[in-house]
């Protein structure tokens, strides 16, 4: 009985929530001029292309979500400013991703930071030891979320396309060459 009573009460609430979300609250400019998903094995290829296109590494970040870890690489350019973000999904069970140290030596510390906070292992990193945390730190990495708190891709990035792009594709090459924050601001 109680379940039956509860159900009709919950339903209108959900409708309200959906309506709220539909309101255009999307930011005009997100700070990203080119945003793409990549498969882990294609990361190095994409980063090499960014290196040739004169980008510099801003930071390497990581987001813990239901599908696994999303490792986020931010790049920007001095000569023609525009931010490129590469997103790579890796599994929670076996969090391994190739290190980009050989292309951008500045990534070494950012990767060590991710290793500290999430336990992501960067293969090929020359010195993957704790950077900011106590080396004798016991227990799980601090930024891991509890399973009940995890959200999935659609909850976090509702309007994004999550299909991986190939760094060999013409689209990728064209986008990174033309990437500019002036352009994307004018469009919005």
């Amino acid at each position: 009985m109680s379940e039956e009573n509860a159900k009709p009460e919950k339903a209108p609430d959900k409708e309200k929530e959906v309506k709220k979300k539909e309101e255009p609250q999307v930011p005009k400019y997100t700070g990203y001029d080119y945003d793409c998903f990549l498969a882990p094995q294609e990361l190095l290829k994409a980063v090499t292309k960014l290196d040739h296109a004169d980008f510099f590494l801003e930071d390497v970040s990581c987001v813990d979500m239901q599908e696994g870890f999303q490792v986020v690489y931010h790049f920007d350019r001095f000569s023609q400013p525009g931010r490129v973000v590469l997103r790579v999904m890796i599994s929670r069970e076996n969090p391994e991703i190739p290190s980009i140290y050989d292309i951008f030596p500045g990534a070494a510390w950012h990767e060590r930071e991710c290793f500290d906070f999430f336990g992501v292992r960067f293969t090929g990193h020359p010195n993957l030891i704790p950077l900011l945390l106590d080396p004798e730190h016991q227990g799980p990495p601090p930024l891991l979320k509890e399973e009940t708190a995890l959200k999935d891709l659609n909850q976090l990035y509702p309007d994004r396309v999550h299909t991986p792009v190939s760094p060999d594709s013409e689209e990728f090459v064209k986008e990174i060459n033309n990437c500019s924050n002036q352009k994307s601001r004018n469009q919005s």
Binding site: K21, V26, P27, T30, G31, H74, D76, V85, Q155, P158
Partner: peptide, 9 residues
């Protein structure tokens, strides 16, 4: 804020 992500520099 609504769901999503931004970068501000």
């Amino acid at each position: 804020p609504p769901a999503g992500d931004v970068y501000f520099a």
